[in-house]
Design a protein around this nucleic acid. Structure first.
Lengths: 330, 330
DNA sequence: TTCCGCAATGTAAACGTTTACATTGCTACT
DNA sequence: AGTAGCAATGTAAACGTTTACATTGCGGAA
């Protein structure tokens, strides 16, 4: 599988290697005649520039690395799609790796990207401690999504969790609910803020929050629902950490012969495609996933261009009321 | 952001560059004393090997590229997870790119991977014609999942579509259905086989297949259901191209005031997490997504090790009956 | 003491590009 | 005719590794 190199093209086309390089990089300095000749030969022998060599020589990759917490979560894949589209516009490509929700996997995933020397990295809800994120930022332009931090070393984009939690609590209280449970997201990648915001909102309104562990996925939604519904005084509403988790809650309720919103109201978070689809459509909090991805790429491009002051963006949440919430049963 | 190089480490540790290289590659030929010294320095100055240089010099990347048709489809992300796990065992990393369901995007995605000179590539339901897949295979070891082909240039892994369609048709006929519609997957990435198998199965049993276009996603499931339910004689059962599409079907039915399986039975394909979750759990055909990913990586590793004969694997489908199918209404 | 063998380390030539700079021929002006 | 200027192309030195091979130094056998 020895692949053709620039030299092969140059020789066969009877020109110098430098000229081939210019052609491949669309330089305007080369004559139409040469350009055509070179392209023809390149095409004929199936030449494809070696990115490693290109990167080594130029110090650039035209590539942005994405580390995503959980590829099974539409929130992240939508973010990736938005990022890919934005990158495309800047003639950049996006390379994805994931830690599959494990600390060690995530380290490796980031390590891989840093080793590749992508021009920048976008970290989607990293689980790693802020210190490590700063180390990453020291190596390459970095934007972190989904983790609250005020580090001057990297940019962040976050949802206003406090406000989101308030919207949900107010909505549910308005429907007459007072025993409201929250199935937490994880305790490492920004789930903590959502949980704390919920607690605070509840407390402020004189209600006791019911909390149960989770990990932002279906299975923990299912388990969490099972746990809280087994309480002596089960909640009349469940606020799941995200839509994925809410799906799990609905699955459990269905299995247990309970209905939403008849018996229990359910709220998700993110407004991913999961929320709209399915027999019971989810009341949830909208997050502009794709747009977040695009904004993150913009921020990275600016950093590549030399910006150094950190920017910490906070997005306003918006409650989307669908059919999974209703009046509290009397 | 000038990053430290091997030379920096070598100088600071008072050794040669080659020795640092040996240490970084865990060679047993270096003394404990030197190893420790080098590692200490590397760690101190935050040295990280440059993959581009490493790749250029060694001709290896220890990396396998994954091109995935649609990151929003759990089928692919599960496959990726399985692949990542298998790669991990072989001390390899996995790099993902997607064409986001567009031909041009897919070309770019594959081009990116080939340019990077990953040691091999795994193509998840590529939309591109077989000719292009062969070109890819000519450059690097290639395994294609989800596309029927008998090319001697690459390996394939596929579901036995004929059998899968038969299982579904028999199941539905057994429940008394005769007007059965199929919402097609796409017409480029292997959706054709599923559609043809369905048609054939129906015909063989003396039934006329009802077909409607689709693209393996929620929206086309929704639209497809809308289309067929508007027929003079609407079907009593819908076989969606995959689970994603089936979700869309369920969403439409719900919106139209119809219920599954009371009014219409619905069948999916893939048995992704979508099938089990949700108020109406899906009858579907099981595919061992993760395992497919793992098998694909195995095949690639063998090819990297020198195997050249192509292997075309066919997996046996298994029908999973859940609550979205029931007797045909009388 | 001499010399062999071996472990540990160093030397230097790749790997396939980019890119600053040098060279070559023209055109067109004086 | 001589030459300035410019477009087109060539030359060669990086870029940061790996790796075959050379060198060093040391312990022990002769």
């Amino acid at each position: 599988m020895a692949q053709p190199t620039m030299d092969d093209v140059a020789t066969k086309a009877g020109v110098s290697r430098a000229l081939v390089s210019l052609v491949m990089n669309r330089s305007p300095r080369v004559s139409d005649h040469s350009r055509e000749k070179v392209l023809a030969v390149a095409n004929e022998i199936g030449y494809r520039p070696n990115m490693a060599a290109r990167n080594l020589a130029s110090g650039q990759t035209q590539t942005i690395g994405l580390m995503l917490n959980d590829l099974h979560n539409p929130y992240f894949t939508l973010m990736a799609e938005g990022a890919a589209a934005a990158a495309e516009e800047a003639e950049m490509r996006v390379l994805i790796s994931s830690g599959w929700k494990q600390d060690s996997g995530e380290s490796q995933a980031i390590e891989l990207l840093l080793g590749l020397r992508t021009d920048a990295v976008l970290l989607g809800s990293p689980r790693l401690p802020e210190l490590l994120l700063e180390q990453c930022a020291a190596q390459t332009p970095t934007v972190v999504v989904g983790v609250w931090a005020t580090s001057p070393a990297f940019d962040t984009i976050n949802n206003d969790e406090d406000h989101g939690a308030e919207l949900i609590v107010d909505h549910l209280m308005g429907l007459g609910h007072s025993r409201i449970a929250h199935i937490e997201g994880n305790r490492v990648a920004g789930g903590l803020e959502r949980r704390d915001s919920f607690s605070k909102s509840m407390m402020n309104r004189g209600l006791a929050p019911i909390l149960v562990e989770g990990d932002f996925d279906e299975i923990s939604g299912y388990e969490g629902a099972k746990t809280v519904m087994a309480l002596k005084e089960p909640p009349t509403a469940i606020f799941a950490g995200n839509d994925l988790s809410a799906s799990g809650v609905l699955a459990y309720l269905d299995e247990a012969g309970l209905s939403a919103p008849g018996d229990v109201s359910v709220v998700g978070y993110d407004d991913t495609v999961l929320a709209g689809v399915g027999a019971v459509s989810l009341t949830t909090v909208f997050q502009p996933c794709k747009q977040i991805g695009g904004t993150a790429i913009q921020a990275l491009l600016e950093r590549i261009d030399g910006r150094t002051e950190a920017r910490h963006e906070v997005l306003e949440p918006r409650l989307i009321v669908r059919s999974s919430t209703g009046p509290a049963p009397s």
